[in-house]
Structures are given as C-alpha cells and as structure tokens.
C-alpha cells in the first residue's frame, strides 16, 4: 500500500544537511523497513546538489524532488495522510519553521522536526524542543534522522487542536476589549 514521507527543507534558507541525510543509505533502509513507498522532497535551490547525491539504489522507494510550490505544501502533506484502502499514515520531516509545523500538525500527521542549526536565530530550536517535550513532535538532528523516523512512527503523539465548539483565536479577547458582552451577540443577530 502507498505510504509516503514528505521532507521539506524550508523556503528561505538552504538546508543541505537535511537533504543529504534524507536520501542517505541509512534513511532509505529505515524507510524501506517501515514499508514506505514514496519519498517526496521540497529542496529549494538544492536541485543540482540533489542530482549529485541522488542514490543509485533507492531500495524500492520512489523519490521525487521539487524546488518550490507557490501554492503551499498542503497537497504534498495530504499525500501523507492515511486513506482507507489507498494509503497508510505517512510522515512529515521538516525544518523548524512554525508555519510548516502548524500545517503538518493540523493535518494530524506524525512529524519529525529538524532545526536548521546554521541559522543564527535559535528560537526555532526552542520551538522544536518545547513541542517535543509536550509530546507533539519528535525532534532530531540531521544525522539521527533514520532513528527519529522510526521513533516517530512508533510512539503515540499528542494531537493538535482538538477542535471545540468554543470560539477561539482573537475573537473573545477583542470582544471583551471592545465591550461586547456575550448576550449582546443575541441582540445583534
């Protein structure tokens, strides 16, 4: 059955280490052991580098590389979701960009977060640490990617945003600041 893993290295900074480890023999072997069938990589400007290091033996895994998708990565992530009779639950591996992490968690996908330590601002690493501590994601560095992938498919994870019927976001806070009271809603309706 189709089982897809999606690796995204981020749109703004090149993350060569992550790409190299995503197609390393060790990672491909781990993916093959876990019966993954497809590996999709978003690699920005690393296209030439990918052609250089592209493995000969992919261990039966179908590898696809693309640079950007200006419409976002929803499509690629959704391909990792489980669908009855079609695909098994896959996995997303991403750099620690908040937007990408949120996108994957909203879709309920298992997630391995690999912070790009070469970036100066380390608040992304703090985000990855805290999310791992709270059980939402598995954090990894580039060289332990294979082990992190295994771990991520095995452990039970906390699901993001168990949707409630309550109004969320800024709405209740803004209403309070403006002076709207709850029952006012009825009058406005």
């Amino acid at each position: 059955m189709h089982r897809e893993i999606f690796v995204t290295t981020g749109a703004t900074a090149d993350f060569q280490d992550l790409l190299a480890n995503a197609v390393s023999n060790e990672t491909l072997q781990a993916l093959s052991d876990l019966s993954f069938t497809h590996l999709t990589i978003q690699g920005g400007k690393l296209g030439d580098y990918f052609q250089e290091i592209k493995p000969e033996n992919t261990r039966g895994i179908n590898i696809r590389f693309f640079d950007f998708n200006k419409n976002g990565l929803q499509q690629e992530m959704k391909a990792c979701q489980a669908r009855e009779g079609v695909s098994e639950e896959g996995l997303v591996v991403c750099h620690a960009g908040a937007g990408t992490i949120l996108d994957a968690m909203r879709l309920g996908l298992p997630l391995v977060v690999v912070p790009n330590v070469s970036l100066l601002d380390n608040h992304q690493e703090e985000l990855a640490d805290e999310l791992e501590r709270q059980g939402y994601v598995v954090k990894s560095d580039t060289k332990d990617l294979a082990a992190a992938i295994k771990k991520s498919t095995q452990i039970s994870r906390k699901t993001w945003g168990t949707s409630t019927n309550e109004r969320g976001g800024i709405a209740p806070i803004a209403d309070k600041l403006i002076g709207y009271e709850e029952e006012v809603k009825g009058r406005l309706d």
Partner: peptide, 20 residues
C-alpha cells in the same frame, strides 16, 4: 510578511463580521 500573515489568518478565524 508571510509567516505573520499566515498566523493572523488563523487568529482571526472566529471574528464575527456582524459585530465588526
């Protein structure tokens, strides 16, 4: 910019346009 705006989109989700 991109990241902030994407987040704002999520934060604004339950704003009631009949009030604002």
């Amino acid at each position: 910019s991109g990241g902030h705006t994407a987040e704002m989109q999520s934060i604004m989700r339950d704003i009631d346009p009949r009030k604002y």
